[in-house]
Computed example of a mutant assay.
Amino acid sequence: MVRCGGAVLRKYGSFVDSLRLYVRGGTGGMGYPRLGGEGGRGGDVWLIAQERATLRSIRDRYPHKRFVAGTGANSSVRALKGEKGKDCEVHVPLGVSLLSDDGKQIGELNAAGERFLAARGGLGGSLATNFVPCKGQRRIVCLDLKLIADVGLVGFPNAGKSSLLSTMSHAKPQVASYPFTTVQPELGKLMYADYKQILVADLPGLIEGAHANKGMGHKFLKHVERTKQLLLVVDVSGFQLSISTPFRTAFEAVLLLTKELELYKEELLRKPALLAINKMDLPGARENLSELLKQLQHPHDFSHLLEEEMIPAKPLEFKNIIPISTYTGEGIEELKACIRSSIDEEAEKENEEYRKKQLQLLQSSAGQGDRR
């Protein structure tokens, strides 16, 4: 467990989603008083987003997690202006937030090639510094990774998310018939006949109170932020986390999951969402499904089933509700088709909004030209 400012950063298993680095810019080079020469500036430390980079690879390759840029060259008779010190470049994964040592966000890197100046090199010695070089900037930078995926699987433990991911994709998450099998995010790709690929993240099961950081809480709720859409997965027969917790029906599970997302960050509920009702192969599944669909159509009529503080302010609206069975394969292809359709629809909306903005800019520029 690593503490970065007020935040506690944890890692589970081999997956690392937070890392604390020491970075220091290079010291400037010495000036040359007799001839007024200026030393070279120290090198800078840059964090650069790169495909396939991982925080684990940084930790394993650089166990001391110290990154120091090169010293600037001294001024000399041959070169009155010293050369700049060598920059230090650290390749980090896409979707990483950069935090200062006190936990404040100072930047983020989301696309390949994006760069962040983590520590600036010191100035070389010159007349202004009495020809004495300056030391480079030094600080602690915490890297906080949030997975970037098209779809995030959200559900309570043992709802069948890992089985669903392995059934739909080539991912091989750990699967077993007991809660908390998944203790780290798993990524899988849905492959389509036209070679379209959709990235799906299986997030470990939440528990009631996850928004308050109970269980793995914020550790995995934060990954939902970077997914474009949500896929809630519930057991059609309901679930009971342990003998000390109450039994929850599928309808209650939907409301509780919605409430946890709402309490963690309300804007998560504005993401497009699908609902997969799993384990349709179990006895009584059809009756349970019929009851659930009736409850979802009129959620306010059944809100008395939960304590008032557990009821979301606004029910989550689902673009599609698909009954499935990861055991028999029922509904899996339909679910994949619904995911594809939803992703394509949202992409088209984004493209349309972009085209409208570009048209508005062109019209605005043309109007300004006419006035001239």
Rank of each mutant, 00 (worst) to 15 (best):
D281G: 09
E186I: 01
G6L: 10
A49P: 00
V236M: 05
F15S: 07
S14W: 01
S341Q: 09
R340E: 00
L282K: 13
E330D: 11
A111N: 06
N213P: 08
A111E: 13
I343S: 12
L230G: 10
K319L: 14
G136F: 01
H218D: 12
L257Y: 10
L296R: 07
R52C: 04
V23D: 03
F116D: 05
F156W: 09
Q297G: 00
A212L: 14
N351D: 11
D344I: 12
K65M: 08
P283N: 13
K86F: 05
L199K: 13
H304E: 13
W46Q: 00
P246M: 10
M30V: 09
G13P: 12
I140T: 15
R138D: 13
Q50K: 12
A313D: 07
D150F: 10
V23R: 04
V224Q: 09
H304P: 05
L232Q: 07
F180E: 04
S75F: 08
A69D: 14
L261K: 10
R3F: 04
Q297Y: 00
R120F: 03
K319Q: 14
G72Q: 01
E353K: 15
D202C: 04
G72A: 10
P323Q: 10
I339V: 13
Y264K: 06
G26T: 08
S75T: 07
C338A: 14
P179I: 05
H300T: 11
E308F: 11
G284E: 12
R138T: 12
P157F: 03
L19G: 09
G29N: 01
E89S: 00
S76G: 09
L21I: 07
G103P: 05
K214Y: 14
Q174P: 03
G5P: 10
Q184C: 08
L47A: 02
A276S: 10
L361C: 09
A212M: 12
V154E: 00
L147E: 13
E266W: 02
R139K: 13
H223C: 14
P173Y: 10
T249P: 04
T328A: 07
I339F: 01
T249E: 04
M191T: 15
A176N: 08
A79M: 14
F318L: 08
A210R: 10
I321F: 00
V151G: 02
L147I: 15
R340A: 11
G103V: 06
L289K: 10
F302T: 07
A337D: 10
Y32R: 05
C142Y: 03
L232E: 04
T182H: 09
L292A: 06
I322Q: 07
H218Y: 04
R248M: 14
L362N: 07
G122I: 05
F302R: 00
Y327C: 06
S126V: 12
K135R: 13
G160N: 02
E353M: 14
K65W: 01
G6E: 14
V96H: 05
L269K: 06
G36Q: 03
S75N: 02
K219V: 14
D301M: 11
T227V: 01
E252T: 05
L164T: 07
L187Y: 04
Y62H: 15
K271R: 11
Q137G: 06
G205L: 10
I106F: 01
P204G: 08
T326S: 13
L292Y: 03
L199Q: 12
V8P: 00
D101F: 09
